[in-house]
Amino acid sequence: MTDTPVRLLNLLSLLQTPREWPGSELAERLSVSPRTIRRDIDRLRELGYPVEATLGSVGGYRLVAGTAMPPLLLDDEEAVAIAVGLRAGAGHAIEGIEEASVRALAKLEQVLPTRLRHRVSTLQNATIPLTRGDGATVTPATLTTLAGAVTGHERLRFGYRAGDGTETKRLVEPHRLVSTERRWYLVAYDLGREDWRTFRVDRVSEPLATGARFTPRELPSGDAATYTARSMARAQGELDLDVEFAAPVEFVVARLPAHLVPTPVGPDRCRLRARVADSVEWLALRLAMMDVDFTVHGPLPLITHIRTLTTRLSTSTP
C-alpha cells in the first residue's frame, strides 16, 4: 500500500478499535514494513492522535484518550447509530444536551453519504416519539438547517406562522438556537422588520440558507437565553411563583431548571420565589412531577388550578 493518506486512514481505522495492535500485525494488515508503521504512527501523533506504544514481546500500539477529541472514522452502522441518537437527543427534552445534539447532528449530516442519510430517515420515520401535550414538534432537518446557518453566519429565508395563524415570509440573520424544556426558539435579526425577533421553531416552515454571509450583530440585551426568556414573558405574561418545598434545597435544585434557584428556610425545607413565563397548567404538571411535597403560596390562578385538578383526580379514582 503506497498511497500514504489512504494508508494513514486505514491505520487510524484499525487503531480506533479498542484493542492493542502489535506492530507486526499492523504491518501485515497494511502490507508495509514495521518501519513504515512506526513512521505512520509518528505522523498520526503529529496530527493530534494520542497513540500509545508499549514495549516487550506482547507490546504494540493503541489509541488512548488525549487532551482534545480528534476526528473519528466511523463505519456505516456506527454513523447511522450516532445520527439516530443525535436526532433523538435534539428532538426530546433531555436537559442540557439538546443544543449540543443539534450542532453535532448538523456536522454529521453535512458529510453523511446519501445512502446512509436515507437509512437514518427511514428508521426515524418508522418510529413515533412521545410528543408534548401541545403537539409542538420540530423536524431534525429544520433544526440542522437553522444550526448550519447560525454557525456559518448565513442569511436565512423561511415561512413563519404567528400565534394568531398569520403566515409571513422572513429574511433573517440567525444569531442562536435556544432550547427550553418544551420548545426550540431561533433568535435572529429580522431584516424586514429591522429589529431582533424570537421565532418558535415549530412554526418555521421551509427554511433555506441563502448562501449570503453576514457579519454577526451584537444582541442588545445580554445573551440569547436571557433575550428569549424576556420575549416569552412579553408574549405570555409573567406569573409571580411562590412555592415552598418539604425537601432540602439541594434536592429541589436538581429537579428545577438552572435559572430557578430556591432559598433554604430550614434544614429540610426551601422556598422558591420567581417570575416565570409558563402557563398554570404546565407549572402544576411540573410541580407534580418533582416527587416532593410542596405548598403553593401564589399565584392565585395556580392555586385554583391545582385545587381543581386535585378534586378531579380524587373523584376519578376507582
Rank of each mutant, 00 (worst) to 15 (best):
Y185V: 00
L186E: 10
L186H: 10
V187E: 08
A188L: 10
Y189K: 00
Y189A: 02
L191V: 15
G192T: 14
R193P: 02
R193K: 12
E194N: 06
E194W: 07
E194R: 12
D195M: 09
W196M: 10
W196T: 09
T198W: 06
T198I: 05
T198Y: 06
T198G: 04
F199H: 05
F199D: 03
F199T: 01
R200G: 07
V201E: 00
V201S: 01
D202R: 03
R203E: 07
V204Y: 04
V204H: 05
S205D: 09
S205T: 14
L208D: 05
T210W: 03
G211T: 13
F214W: 06
F214H: 12
T215D: 05
T215N: 04
R217T: 11
E218T: 15
E218W: 01
L219E: 04
P220V: 15
G222M: 02
G222L: 01
D223L: 02
A224L: 03
A224Q: 03
A225K: 13
T226N: 09
T226R: 12
Y227S: 05
T228S: 02
T228W: 01
T228V: 15
A229P: 08
S231P: 02
S231D: 13
S231N: 13
M232Q: 14
M232S: 14
A235K: 03
Q236M: 15
G237M: 07
L239H: 15
L239Q: 15
L239N: 13
D240H: 14
L241W: 02
L241A: 10
L241M: 03
D242V: 11
F245S: 03
F245A: 00
A246T: 13
A246M: 12
A247M: 14
A247H: 14
P248D: 06
V249A: 01
E250T: 11
V252C: 07
V252W: 04
V252H: 03
V252Y: 03
V253K: 11
V253Y: 01
V253T: 06
A254V: 05
R255V: 00
L256G: 06
L256H: 07
P257S: 10
P257C: 10
A258L: 08
H259Y: 10
V261L: 15
P262D: 12
T263L: 14
P264T: 15
P264Q: 12
